[in-house]
Design a protein around this nucleic acid. Structure first.
Lengths: 157, 157
DNA sequence: CATGTAAAGTTGACATATCAACTATCGATA
DNA sequence: TATCGATAGTTGATATGTCAACTTTACATG
């Protein structure tokens, strides 16, 4: 028997801390963005769209933001109501919308970004650049592996 | 002017990846726990209580699970309805409940834990033990710093 | 061309999460 | 002891998130 699979070890500890850290950072970002009455998800969506002049379909938004497509509907609804994004009919596909950021949305993002970058740098300040690079490579491997495992489990269903 | 605060650098990249990785892992855990009709939050709550024979107040649960205390109310409600936890009146304080895990809750957690530990080890398998230790130390520093920054912003309000 | 299958988006039911406002209780202290 | 500020928990409003079921459209293949 492989006892190591049934008891928490350092890898488990690392995973838990990773999740907790993400929660703390997410909570901090919620407080930061509340100055502009945006939720973290709303900011992420706008921030993603600012580099997409042609916009993006809601399904693609859901994929990139790691959320169910039905959630994108409401998110876009509320942002559209505030005039920060717009739904444009797609030429090639009459099922799909192209969600684009408006000028107003662009302005609010431009106003937030300096504070946002400043905050992210500040959070990560205690980590040396060498360590940051190790971190990126390790975390990327973990993400890839987690993704793969998740799909295996899903397909088995 | 400090230009570096207004442009994304490697530290920003690391932060984003950390958050995305946490989302992917959280999603994977949701699929894992769905076999027992538990949400990740429900599992975390039960898992926390299994080592607390005296139980824990809802406020303390909220603190440890990084969630608002009003959310604990509903979470405990649903778990209590399924007979997995119980609210016990506290002797010393008539305002507070002590939330304890039931025998049924203990059984379900005992059944899940091997799969859970196996899954966490599997996710983190591509990382060497040395790197895991570095990861723990770096992430802990980040969490601590993020926590501190969040409180500063909160107090300024 | 017809038909079946897949994909885009919406909807309704529900869990999860926040916040503000509320009740009840605790504790310190005047 | 009376009072006042803090703490435990609930409630209602709302946002965020999942899922299953649905409509509409696209596309491949007979």
């Amino acid at each position: 028997m492989r006892r190591n699979l049934c008891q928490p070890g350092p890898r488990h500890d690392a995973l838990i801390r990773l999740l907790q850290t993400a929660e703390v950072i997410w909570e901090g970002s919620r407080i930061l963005f509340s100055r502009w009455a945006l939720s973290p998800s709303q900011f992420n969506l706008l921030n993603l769209l600012k580099n997409e002049p042609a916009g993006m379909s809601q399904t693609e938004l859901g994929r990139q933001l790691v959320m169910h497509k039905s959630n994108v509907t409401g998110l876009v609804d509320r942002l559209q109501k505030r005039g920060l994004v717009d739904r444009r009919k797609t030429l090639g596909d009459r099922r799909a919308y192209s969600v684009v950021i408006t000028e107003k949305g662009r302005r609010i993002i431009a106003e937030i970004l300096p504070h946002y970058y400043s905050a992210t740098e500040s959070v990560m300040a205690p980590i040396s650049l060498k360590r940051v690079n190790d971190l990126i490579s390790d975390i990327s491997r973990i993400m890839e592996h987690a993704h793969q495992l998740t799909h295996e489990v899903k397909d088995r269903k």
